[in-house]
């Protein structure tokens, strides 16, 4: 008795068009195509398309590489830029040292007990800094990618001491990319990163925060908007390069999902 065959799938046809069909599926697919000439024509058309695409790009592939793209040249211009930047850093450290010395000299004149920043303000600052640091990251925007969502959520929940759930922002066009743990004054903060089809990135920043509960507060720095709130011992902040009216419904959705 032969084992029942898996039915022919679109994935078989895709793999066939890419010459990647596993050997054991080949006879089954071949038999299917013999019985369905229309599908066979389709696969042939796909292969012809692919060959045409390859042929039309072959000249580009075989072109000599311009010298500005030589690694040695790119590395040299990077080194030159780094040197300039290091000089600037050295200069600003010097200024900082002068400023600090001056400040220390004036300490007796300053008033005691500068007020602590309100909790929501420091939360927004931390969330905004995290956004700015990781959103530009091309190669490693997240520590754990969304493929391992269960692991990611378990890990982040443990680190911040709150059972988390990654809010589903699919209806706003944002997909979960993954997340990471960040240092925070209260221990650890969790950051989840999402992106949409245009490559815009959105972060959800969560940390333990003992401040009094607040309503939504809004802040904008450059083109990045942040909504934040404190709820039952945790601070939340949503940041994205969107305007207030577009970010508000997303923040509300996150609020509903995390409060549930």
């Amino acid at each position: 008795m032969t084992a029942p065959q898996m039915p022919i799938g679109e994935d078989d046809l895709t793999a066939l068009a890419d010459d990647r069909l596993p050997a054991e599926r080949r006879p089954v697919v071949a038999a299917y195509l013999a019985a369905h000439p229309d599908v066979a024509l389709r696969v042939e058309a796909d292969m012809a398309q692919r060959d045409a695409l390859r042929a039309s790009l072959a000249a580009k592939f075989n072109e000599p590489v311009p010298s500005r793209l030589r690694i040695a040249n790119i590395a040299a211009s990077r080194r030159a830029r780094l040197t300039t930047r290091l000089r600037l850093v050295a200069a600003s450290l010097l200024l900082l040292a002068i400023g600090a010395a001056g400040g220390w000299g004036l300490r007796a004149l300053s008033l005691p007990g500068a007020p602590e920043p309100p909790a929501a303000i420091s939360l927004a600052g931390a969330a905004f800094d995290a956004y700015r640091t990781f959103v530009v990251e091309v190669a490693h925007p997240v520590e754990v990618r969304a493929e391992n969502e269960a692991h990611l959520i378990g890990w982040l929940s443990k680190r911040i001491g709150k059972p988390l759930k990654a809010p589903d922002l699919g209806r706003f066009g944002f997909r979960l990319m993954g997340g990471r743990v960040l240092p925070a004054s209260s221990g650890a903060a969790a950051m989840l990163m999402y992106d949409n089809d245009l490559g815009a990135r959105l972060t959800v920043y969560i940390r333990a925060d003992k401040g009094a509960e607040t309503a939504f507060q809004f802040r904008r720095e450059g083109d990045v908007s942040t909504f934040m709130w404190l709820d039952r011992g945790f601070g939340f902040a949503i940041s994205a390069p969107l305007d207030r009216t577009r970010l508000l419904p997303i923040a509300e959705a996150v609020y509903k999902e995390t409060a549930a």
Binding site: L57, K60, F61, N62, E63, V65, L69, I71, A72, A75
Partner: peptide, 22 residues
């Protein structure tokens, strides 16, 4: 960086092809 050059250079034609098609 020499090892970077040895690994990256052979991939440049393919990167240019993809970039041009985009």
């Amino acid at each position: 960086m020499d090892d970077a050059a040895a690994l990256l250079e052979p991939l440049i034609p393919a990167l240019r092809r993809y970039a041009y098609a985009l």
